[in-house]
Design a protein around this nucleic acid. Structure first.
Lengths: 231, 231
DNA sequence: TTCCCTACTTGCGCTGCAGCAAGGAGGAGA
DNA sequence: TCTCCTCCTTGCTGCAGCGCAAGTAGGGAA
């Protein structure tokens, strides 16, 4: 597989990087393809590589000691994940990266990026902006989980997922996720998600299908997310 | 108030910074003192300054639309907080910073630190390590809140707080926090915290007082945190 | 077309824990 | 020393939403 350095420009973190650095990165990137449900890495593995997703979709999840899963984030094409190793030598991944569909990512040695950053402040800055986004999002989600009821949290989670990986069509915004995935992202259960979505479907807010949710009335969802009680 | 550049070395992020840069920082730091329950900044304010806590203790909290509070983190002496403005120009603070006791912090202009970072990769690296810690901790807490029962979450929260701001004495590790603060950090309520602590006190795990908790048997708490059911 | 696997649905019972209310107690200030 | 303000305690009640169980339905494979 050929890697076009120009494609790397689509990665937010690499937006302001000179062309020659992109070439350097491309030369040091190893494409790796995995099938649906397989893993790029596991929580606890040593973080030797960071990845740039070229195609497919990947979810970052944690499992608790009893095996329950929690979704932290869904990675889209041309997003970077698993970068922690470039910041701390010997770090381990805090999450597991599992493919939602067959996916290809570029693996870059953490050390290599770490070395590049030492002479390229723009690169560090880009990575820091990515991380502040993460912190902010996780804080918001934590607050929501601690203080909001499921229905509102579900609306917030779906809107957030839509903005991150939603596919716009003329019918609305489509989310190619199972209800189990949604539940794990909202901090709830498949059952409650199913019940709530059925309710919303009756009200014309969404349309549900197998591993698929279409948002028909985003404004209605925003109202629920912002606290309008369902009558 | 005089600022001794050598003191700044106690800040984790500034550990590997040359002396002359510490002098530069000290020259650009404005001491600011506030009383108990007052605020350094509010969620939503423009992040023009970052702070280094010199004395006292500060909590970073979010409030939801209904006014409920959630504690994100407690800042100890010589820790840095509110640094987001140095990473993104025009950013707003995602949290409110409130003093738990009368406190003094050094305010440094976000732009100033941002400028320093552009030529000092070590500084960026230090800040990134701080941020990866935040991300990792928030992810863990999110997973705990989503999957664990209150008792275990409480044990985890108290152990975490103890490692961050605990004061060691011969009787054990003391936390100078109200049960309300603990509840807001664990994602629960004052009532449940009080009930659980009473139970633990009977078992000799902790000792409670007004705005004070002493951990008498850390190992017992770890057992609860790791899943030993209370018989 | 049929089969089968997996995802989704929905009724039902149960419970963890929130939240109120009313009272107790520690400690700062006068 | 007394007062008053907070913080803490604890009995009681209610219910959101979890989780089981049993059934339905979509869609890939052959």
């Amino acid at each position: 597989m050929k890697i076009d350095p120009a494609d790397l420009r689509r990665v937010d973190v690499l937006e302001n990087i000179p062309d020659e650095d992109l070439v350097l990165l491309a030369q040091n990137a190893i494409p790796r393809s995995i099938e649906e449900d397989e893993f790029f890495f596991f929580q606890g593995d040593e973080a030797l590589f960071l990845y740039i997703l070229v195609s497919g979709r990947v979810k970052l999840l944690q499992t608790n000691p009893m095996g329950q899963q929690v979704n932290m984030r869904i990675i889209n094409e041309w997003q970077l994940f698993g970068a922690i190793g470039a910041v701390r030598p010997k770090a381990t991944y805090p999450v597991t990266a599992q493919a939602l569909e067959s996916s290809t990512a570029l693996a870059i040695e953490s050390q290599f990026l770490s070395g590049m950053m030492s002479t390229r402040p723009q690169l560090s800055m880009g990575l820091m902006q990515l991380m502040t986004n993460y912190v902010r999002e996780m804080q918001d989600r934590y607050r929501e989980l601690a203080t909001e009821r499921v229905e509102r949290r579900l609306a917030l989670a779906i809107l957030r997922l839509a903005s991150q990986i939603g596919i716009k069509s003329n019918a609305g915004v489509e989310l190619p996720l199972s209800q189990q995935d949604i539940a794990e992202a909202a901090g709830s259960t498949m059952f409650t998600v199913s019940r709530t979505l059925s309710e919303w479907e009756k009200r014309g807010l969404v349309e549900t299908g197998r591993e698929r949710i279409v948002i028909r009335n985003p404004h209605g969802l925003v109202q629920i997310a912002e606290g309008a009680e369902s009558e």
